[in-house]
Design a protein around this nucleic acid. Structure first.
Lengths: 108, 108
DNA sequence: TTCATTGTTCCATGTTGATGGAACAATAAG
DNA sequence: CTTATTGTTCCATCAACATGGAACAATGAA
């Protein structure tokens, strides 16, 4: 496990990669779950998918600036970078998160 | 030319197809140009691309609910459905359009 | 040390979607 | 009718990306 992740600075976050990252059903699901749970690690959100696939999606979200990963022991806890995103593209993520299903946490 | 287009009703516009439609550089460019120009037909925005390719992108944007096409003689004039989008996903398109380059019209 | 857990990396495969030429359709003008 | 313009549709090709197995790395516990 690479203990270090590169999280892009706010100025490095650009719209098109961000949109591309969000425009995927699995990744949108990850975003919604993180929004509901506040924090989650990769395995928690697997729901039958292979780890390699989920790890890939977390990487895409990370490099797009959407989430940050904090290493805690053997787990890597992920949280949305809502403050940064709201500062960088006001209203964008909140518009997306408004569509978050209300019963998501139980679907895990 | 199919004289009729199907424009999805506001309730039929869903987030994921909308995000997928926007998450493409060519289509984001079309959106920005329509935002700058107010209205434009396909050929106006070609800028060296083949018509079949642009026609495809207009179709994707249309089916996602982002633009509507009005037939005027031999031309098909496209406009953004800003009112519908703002009603359906408040703040989403305005956040995207805020990133529209100021000098876009001259780039045509 | 040994084992379990977590997540990444590598790699091959498959699928989706963008690209672009060609033919066609629709409207308008000469 | 003929011609020009506009945009769609069909089709083949290509590239980007998601998928998922396997091996590996990192931390923690026994």
């Amino acid at each position: 496990m690479a203990a270090l992740y590169h999280h892009p600075a706010p100025e490095e976050i650009t719209l098109l990669p961000l949109l591309r990252a969000v425009a995927d059903p699995v990744r949108l699901g990850i975003i919604y779950h993180l929004h509901s749970l506040g924090e989650a690690n990769c395995t928690t959100l697997l729901r039958g998918r292979p780890k390699s696939s989920m790890s890939h999606h977390f990487q895409v979200l990370r490099e797009a600036g959407i989430l940050q990963t904090r290493v805690e022991g053997v787990q890597h806890r992920n949280t949305l970078r809502l403050d940064v995103l709201e500062e960088r593209f006001p209203g964008l993520m909140s518009a997306i998160l408004r569509e978050c299903p209300a019963d998501l946490p139980e679907k895990i």
